[in-house]
C-alpha cells in the first residue's frame, strides 16, 4: 500500500533546467522523510508539486491517498504547509493571521478564532498575539508560520527548510515542536540543507541532487556510507607520520570498510574514521603524547552535507552553507583542512 506521501516519476522542467528529473518518493503514514540536498537540487520544486502549487510535466503523486493532479482541492484540505515560501502577513497580528488561515480552511469564524487562541498558547505567542507579525523575531515568525500550517490539524505536513537562518536555540525549540507533532502520528516531509536536522527529525532520508533522488536510507546508513566521524591529526614533522598513522589505526572504527588511516604527506595530515566522539579524541591525544608525537592540530570531523555529497556523487554540494557549523570540532577540522 502506498504511503501517505507517494510520488512516482515526477518530472518538471523550467526552460533548459530539469528541476525534477524523475523523482520517486514513498513516505509511510506517521513517519518523517528528510529531503536533503543543496540549494537548487529540486527539494522545493518537489514540495511545490506535492502541495498542489505546481503541476509536474509528468509523473503521478498521491497525498493522504488523494491524487494530487486530479483532486488538488481535496489534497489542500488534508495538508499543512510551512517553511521558507509559505509566509504570514506581516501587517496582520499573529491572531489575525491564524484566524484568516482558519477561515480560508473553511472553518467558521468562531471556530477559527478559538483555534487561533489555542495555537498561540501552544506556541508561546500569547503575549505577542495582538502585535503585527512585523514586530516578531525570526524564531517567533517561524513558530507563527508553523502554527498556520497546523490550523486544521492536518494528517500530512510539508516543511520547507523550517529552520534555515535560525540561531541554534530557536532551531532546537522548533525541533522540539516538530518532534511532538510527529509523535502524534503526523506524516511529515521535511526539506533541509542540514544533515544534523535530518538526523534529528527524520526516520528516513532521501538525498536529492540535480532533480534526482540519488540515495535513500536512515541517517546511520548514510553516515556509514559517508565514513562517519573522523579524527584528523596534523603532525609536526614528516618522520612522525608513520607512527601517528599506526596509533590512529588502533582507534579506527571497526566494521567499516574505510577503516584504514589515510595519509596526506604534503600537509602531514593523518585521518581515520572513528566512532566514540570527543571522549575518544581525548584518548587519542593522550596516546600520541605518550609516544612523543608532537602535533600541530587535531580535530574531530563529523560528516557534513558536503561529505555526504562527496561520498555519493563525487562532487561537493556547491553553494550549500557549511553544515554543522555549531560544532567547534568540525570548525577546527575545517580550518585545519585549508
Amino acid at each position: 500500500m502506498p504511503g501517505a506521501i507517494y510520488a512516482e516519476g515526477l518530472v518538471k522542467t523550467f526552460g533548459e533546467v530539469r528541476a525534477l528529473d524523475g523523482v520517486d518518493l514513498d513516505v509511510p503514514e506517521g513517519t518523517v522523510l528528510g529531503l536533503l540536498g543543496p540549494n537548487g537540487a529540486g527539494k522545493t520544486t518537489a514540495v511545490r508539486v506535492l502541495t498542489t502549487l505546481l503541476r509536474p510535466d509528468s509523473g503521478r503523486a498521491r497525498v493522504a491517498g488523494i491524487d494530487v493532479l486530479k483532486h488538488p482541492n481535496e489534497v489542500r484540505r488534508s495538508i499543512g504547509l510551512s517553511g521558507q515560501f509559505a509566509a504570514v502577513d506581516e501587517y496582520l497580528t499573529g491572531r489575525e493571521n491564524l484566524q484568516m488561515v482558519g477561515q480560508l480552511y473553511q472553518m467558521g469564524a468562531k471556530a477559527a478564532k478559538a483555534r487561533a487562541g489555542e495555537l498561540l498558547d501552544r506556541f508561546n505567542l500569547s503575549d505577542a498575539a495582538d502585535r503585527p507579525a512585523k514586530t516578531y523575531s525570526g524564531g517567533m515568525r517561524r513558530r507563527l508560520d508553523l502554527a498556520a500550517a497546523l490550523v486544521v490539524r492536518p494528517p500530512v505536513m510539508f516543511m520547507d527548510e523550517p529552520t534555515t537562518g535560525l540561531d541554534p536555540r530557536n532551531r532546537q525549540q522548533l525541533w522540539d515542536v516538530i518532534k511532538e507533532l510527529v509523535s502524534g502520528g503526523t506524516t511529515l516531509l521535511l526539506t533541509t540543507q542540514y544533515l544534523e536536522e535530518a538526523d534529528n527529525l527524520a526516520h528516513d532520508i532521501a538525498v536529492i541532487d540535480h532533480g534526482r533522488v540519488i540515495e535513500r536510507g536512515t541517517s546511520d546508513q548514510l553516515k556509514a556510507r559517508t565514513g562517519g566521524e573522523r579524527v584528523e591529526v596534523v603532525v609536526q614533522t614528516p618522520e612522525m607520520i608513520e607512527p601517528a598513522a599506526a596509533i590512529l589505526h588502533r582507534f579506527s572504527a571497526k566494521g567499516l570498510n574505510k577503516a584504514e588511516a589515510t595519509v596526506d604527506r604534503h600537509t602531514r595530515r593523518v585521518t581515520v574514521p572513528v566512532t566514540g566522539g570527543a571522549k575518544l579524541l581525548a584518548e587519542v591525544i593522550r596516546e600520541l603524547d605518550t609516544h612523543g608525537i608532537e602535533i600541530d592540530d587535531i580535530g574531530l570531523r563529523r560528516p557534513t552535507l558536503d561529505d555526504v555529497f562527496l561520498a555519493l556523487t563525487g562532487h561537493a554540494a556547491e553553494d550549500a552553507p557549511a553544515t554543522d557549523a555549531e560544532s567547534p570540532a568540525a570548525q577546527r577540522a575545517e580550518e585545519a583542512a585549508k
Binding site: N73, R76, R77, Y105, Q106, M107, E118, P155, L181, G185
Partner: peptide, 10 residues
C-alpha cells in the same frame, strides 16, 4: 491539539 482532522469540506 495535534489530533488530526481534515479541513471542513468546502
Amino acid at each position: 491539539s495535534f489530533t488530526h482532522s481534515r479541513a471542513p469540506r468546502p
